[in-house]
Simulated scan of single mutants.
Amino acid sequence: FLLFFQVKGPGIGLLGISLGADICLLMASFLKNISATVSINGSGFSGNRTIQYKQTRIPPLGFDLRRTKVAFSGILDIVDIRNDLVGGYKNPSMIPIEKAQGPILFIVGQDDHNWRSELYAQTASDRLQAHGKGKPQIISYPGTGHYIEPPYFPMCPASLHILLNKAVMWGGEMRAHSKAQIDAWEQIISFFRKHLGTQKRTSRL
């Protein structure tokens, strides 16, 4: 049968959502051969615990659960619990994304209720430009929540938060969120094709 190898190499692309996006940003900042990175509603900060890689130590931004709100439905709204971004892009809790070798695409839901993804993406843009890097591509979707998944995945407006062990809202309006998932997928594919190449090698076994 045929195997289709879609990674051109030697560089690779990273795609992550939420905390997974922050892990991708960390990898892009500290590891070699990362040619392109897509952050879907990531924060770009060390959130709840200190991150250490070799001699680099990134302290947590921290949060305050007293800022939790309860929606009419009884589900928690945690969008305001994270601490303020004192110092903006100079905040010591920010991932040093200026060290990334390849470009970064930020996909943002403007109705994200996990954290303020649009603010974080703009802060990341400010940091990159302050370090002489080009302005990154930021694609923001109104009426769109935290979990921007592949097209036709059902929208997840709320679910159990593994750290809080309680149901929290993720935001988003059904129609707008669903349309955003379709467009975001196309944007991601286009981004990777541009920066990773589209050559395919086939091998017959």
Rank of each mutant, 00 (worst) to 15 (best):
F5Q: 10
Q6H: 15
V7N: 11
K8C: 08
P10F: 01
G11Y: 02
G13N: 09
G13H: 04
L14E: 03
L15T: 07
L15Y: 12
I17A: 06
S18Q: 03
D22C: 10
I23D: 04
L26T: 05
L26Q: 08
A28R: 05
N33H: 15
S35L: 02
S35V: 01
A36M: 05
N41D: 09
G42N: 03
S43D: 04
G47H: 04
Y53D: 02
K54M: 13
T56C: 09
V70C: 00
A71P: 00
S73K: 08
G74L: 08
G74Q: 05
L76W: 06
V79K: 06
D80Y: 08
I81S: 03
S93R: 13
S93M: 14
I97H: 06
A100M: 01
L105M: 08
D111G: 00
D111C: 01
H113F: 13
N114I: 03
R116N: 12
Y120V: 02
A121L: 02
A124Y: 07
H131W: 06
H131A: 10
K133I: 02
K133E: 11
K133F: 07
K133R: 15
P142C: 04
T144D: 11
P151L: 04
Y152R: 14
Y152A: 14
F153Q: 12
P154M: 08
P157T: 05
A158H: 13
H161R: 02
I162C: 11
I162K: 14
L163R: 06
A167W: 04
E173D: 13
E173W: 01
M174D: 08
A176S: 14
S178H: 13
S178Q: 15
A180D: 07
A180S: 14
A180N: 09
A184L: 08
E186N: 14
E186V: 08
E186T: 12
I188N: 10
I188G: 12
I188H: 14
I189M: 13
R193Y: 14
R193W: 11
R193F: 13
H195R: 03
H195E: 12
L196D: 07
T198Y: 11
R201Q: 13
T202Y: 14
